[in-house]
Lab assay of single mutants.
Amino acid sequence: FHVTIHVGDITFHIHGVSEEEVKKLEELVRRGADWREIKKTIEEIEK
């Protein structure tokens, strides 16, 4: 999957994300995680 996440003024683009990881990111966004937490999760996914 290709994912784009907008957190305030920050936009993250992630490529090659599995469905499971998409759900993890959706959950973070849904519970209102700040951009640092989302960035950390994205960095883990990209490894």
Rank of each mutant, 00 (worst) to 15 (best):
K23F: 12
E46D: 11
E37P: 01
K40R: 14
D9R: 06
D34P: 03
I45H: 04
E26D: 13
E43N: 09
V22F: 13
E27W: 04
E21H: 14
G16E: 06
T41E: 07
E19A: 13
K24H: 12
V3D: 02
E26L: 13
G8N: 08
K47R: 13
E37N: 02
I45Q: 04
T4R: 03
E27D: 13
E26C: 08
E26V: 10
T41C: 07
G8Q: 06
V22Y: 14
A33D: 04
E44T: 10
H13W: 03
F1A: 09
I38P: 00
K39N: 08
I38E: 00
G8Y: 02
V3W: 02
E44L: 11
E21I: 15
E37K: 02
H6A: 09
I42P: 00
E27P: 00
D34A: 03
E26A: 10
V3F: 05
S18L: 06
V22K: 08
V29T: 06
E46C: 13
K39D: 06
S18I: 05
F1V: 14
R36F: 14
I14E: 00
I10Q: 15
H13T: 08
T11H: 15
T41D: 02
K40I: 10
V29A: 09
W35L: 15
E46G: 11
V22A: 13
F12R: 02
V17A: 09
K40T: 13
T4C: 03
E43R: 07
S18H: 05
R36I: 15
D9W: 07
I14V: 13
I42S: 01
K24P: 01
E37L: 02
V29R: 04
L25T: 00
H2M: 09
R31Q: 13
I5L: 08
R30W: 04
K23L: 10
E46A: 13
I5D: 00
E20C: 06
G8C: 04
H6R: 13
V3Y: 06
E43L: 13
I38C: 02
E27T: 05
I42V: 10
H6I: 14
D9K: 08
H13A: 02
H15F: 14
H15K: 05
E21G: 13
V3P: 01
D34C: 05
T11N: 04
F12D: 00
A33S: 07
G16T: 10
K24L: 15
G32M: 06
E46L: 15
I14K: 01
V7K: 03
H13V: 10
K47S: 14
H13M: 02
R31E: 09
E44N: 07
V29S: 04
K47F: 10
W35V: 14
H6M: 12
E43M: 09
R31A: 09
G32Y: 03
I10G: 04
R36T: 14
V22P: 00
D9C: 09
R31D: 08
E26P: 00
V7H: 10
L25A: 00
V3I: 11
G16C: 08
E46N: 12
D34F: 02
H15D: 07
V3E: 02
I10K: 15
E20V: 09
V29I: 12
H2F: 09
V22T: 06
H13C: 07
K40A: 13
E46T: 15
H2A: 06
K24W: 10
T41I: 14
K39E: 13
V7Q: 04
E46Q: 13
V17I: 13
H13P: 01
E44V: 09
K39Q: 15
I42M: 07
T11F: 10
I14L: 13
V17E: 03
V22R: 10
H2C: 10
K40N: 11
H6G: 03
I10V: 14
E37C: 02
L25S: 00
E19G: 11
R36G: 15
D9M: 06
E21R: 04
E27N: 10
E19Y: 15
I5S: 00
V17T: 04
K23R: 11
E27Q: 10
H2V: 14
A33F: 01
D34G: 07
K39S: 13
G8F: 02
K24R: 14
E44P: 02
R36E: 15
T4P: 01
G32N: 12
G8T: 02
G32V: 03
V3K: 04
E26S: 09
D34R: 04
E26K: 09
F1W: 04
K24M: 15
G8A: 04
R30K: 14
H6F: 06
E20H: 12
G32D: 06
G16P: 04
G32Q: 06
R31V: 08
T11R: 03
F12K: 01
G8K: 03
R30E: 12
D34Q: 03
E21Q: 14
L25Y: 01
E37Q: 04
I38D: 01
I42Q: 01
K24V: 14
E37F: 01
G16A: 11
R30P: 00
G32F: 04
K47T: 11
W35K: 06
D34N: 08
I38W: 02
K39A: 15
G16N: 15
W35A: 14
T41V: 14
I38H: 01
T11C: 06
K47D: 09
A33P: 05
I42Y: 02
D34S: 08
S18A: 07
K23N: 10
A33L: 03
V7L: 12
H6P: 02
V29N: 02
H13N: 04
E27F: 05
L25N: 00
E37W: 01
E46K: 09
S18V: 04
S18C: 04
I14Y: 05
R31W: 05
F12E: 01
E46F: 14
E20D: 11
E20P: 09
K39L: 15
E44H: 12
H15Q: 07
G32E: 06
G8L: 04
V29Y: 06
E44S: 10
D34M: 01
K23M: 13
K47V: 12
E43H: 10
D9Q: 07
H15I: 07
T4N: 04
E19T: 07
I5T: 00
H6L: 09
E21C: 08
D34W: 01
V17L: 14
F12H: 03
V17Y: 14
E19Q: 11
K40W: 06
E27R: 06
R31K: 13
R36W: 14
H2E: 14
L25W: 02
T41W: 15
E27M: 09
V17S: 05
T41H: 12
E20S: 11
G32T: 04
L28W: 02
E37I: 03
L28G: 01
F12I: 13
G32P: 02
G32S: 05
I42L: 12
E27K: 08
I14M: 09
L28A: 07
R31T: 10
T11V: 12
H15G: 05
R36L: 15
T11M: 06
L28S: 02
I45W: 14
F12C: 05
E21K: 06
E44M: 12
E21M: 14
V17P: 06
E20T: 11
E20L: 11
I38S: 00
H2K: 04
T4Y: 03
E27I: 08
V29K: 05
L25M: 04
H15M: 08
V22G: 06
G16R: 03
T11D: 05
G32I: 03
T4W: 03
R36N: 14
F1S: 11
I10E: 09
K39R: 10
T4V: 11
D9V: 04
S18K: 13
V22L: 14
I45V: 06
E21A: 14
V29H: 04
D9Y: 09
K23A: 11
I45G: 03
T11S: 07
V3N: 02
I10S: 07
R30L: 10
E43Q: 12
I42R: 01
H6T: 15
V17F: 15
V17N: 04
V3R: 03
H6Y: 04
V7Y: 15
D9A: 06
W35S: 11
H6W: 05
V29D: 01
E20R: 08
I14P: 00
E27H: 07
K47I: 10
R30I: 12
I5Q: 00
E44A: 11
I5A: 01
F1L: 15
H6Q: 13
I5W: 00
V22M: 12
E43G: 07
T11P: 02
L25D: 00
I5N: 00
T4G: 01
I38T: 01
K23C: 06
E43A: 11
I38F: 04
T41N: 08
T11Q: 06
R31N: 12
I10R: 15
V3G: 03
R36V: 15
S18E: 06
L28K: 03
K47Y: 08
I5E: 00
H13I: 10
W35H: 10
W35Q: 10
R36C: 11
K39V: 12
I10M: 13
I38L: 07
K40Q: 11
E20M: 13
E43P: 01
V17G: 04
F1G: 12
K24A: 11
I5P: 00
E21D: 15
E19L: 14
E26W: 06
E27L: 07
A33H: 03
H13Q: 05
D9S: 07
S18F: 05
E46S: 12
E20G: 09
E44F: 08
E19M: 13
K47A: 13
H15S: 07
F1N: 14
I10P: 00
K23S: 10
K39M: 15
T4L: 05
H2R: 04
E21N: 14
L28H: 02
V22I: 08
F1Q: 15
L25V: 05
H2S: 08
V22N: 05
D34Y: 01
R31C: 06
K24G: 05
G8P: 01
T41L: 15
K23V: 11
S18Q: 07
R30V: 10
V3S: 03
R36S: 15
A33E: 06
F12A: 02
R36K: 13
I45E: 01
K23H: 12
L28Q: 07
H15W: 11
E21Y: 12
